[in-house]
Amino acid sequence: MAEKTFAGKTVEVTAEGYLVNKSDWSKEVAAEMAKEDGIELTDKHYEVLDYLREQEASGASLTIRKVGKSGIVDIKGLYELFPGGPLKLSSKYAGISKPASCV
């Protein structure tokens, strides 16, 4: 495990950049994680992140299709918000574990 500093807070991350401790997550931490990948988070991004955090807390499995049916954003919109790996990136920024469906 590695340590990184986001928003003035030192956090432990996996080799792929996912937070080890979900309690380290904040919107500020998410914003700085996304900036490293060249993404500026908007209100729509945060809606997706909040949805993912809620779903993960309830024990639901996460898929791109499920997010697309959430009513927050369709699948095409999810790819536009998080290019190059929508579920992988959004989960990372949401401070949750990497979904099993992501390679």
Rank of each mutant, 00 (worst) to 15 (best):
G85P: 04
E80D: 13
K4W: 11
G68M: 09
L87E: 02
K76M: 12
G77D: 05
E28M: 03
A31S: 09
T10V: 15
K4C: 07
M33S: 03
K4H: 12
C102P: 04
T5Y: 01
N21E: 14
M33R: 03
W25L: 02
K69I: 02
V13Y: 01
K44Q: 15
V103H: 06
A94E: 01
G59C: 10
A31W: 09
F82R: 06
A2G: 12
E56R: 10
S26R: 00
E54Y: 12
S61I: 13
E47H: 08
P86W: 05
L81E: 08
M33K: 09
P99T: 10
K35H: 06
G77F: 06
L52I: 09
P83W: 07
V103C: 07
K44N: 12
S26C: 02
E40K: 14
I96T: 00
P86L: 06
A30Q: 08
E47L: 11
G38A: 08
S23D: 10
A34N: 03
S90L: 09
D24V: 00
A60S: 13
G59I: 14
Y93E: 07
R65E: 15
Y51M: 10
I64A: 15
A2I: 14
G71N: 09
L52T: 04
L87A: 01
Y51S: 05
E3N: 14
P86E: 13
G59F: 08
S70R: 04
K4S: 09
D50K: 09
E47S: 11
M33W: 07
G84C: 04
V67N: 00
S26P: 02
L52V: 04
A34F: 02
K9D: 03
K27E: 15
V29P: 06
L62F: 09
K98W: 00
Y93V: 00
G8K: 09
L49M: 11
L62P: 10
V29D: 06
V11W: 04
G38K: 02
F82M: 06
G95Q: 02
I64M: 14
N21M: 01
K76F: 14
H45K: 13
A30H: 05
G38Q: 01
R53P: 03
F6S: 03
G71W: 11
V103I: 10
L52A: 01
D37A: 13
P86K: 10
K9Q: 14
D50E: 13
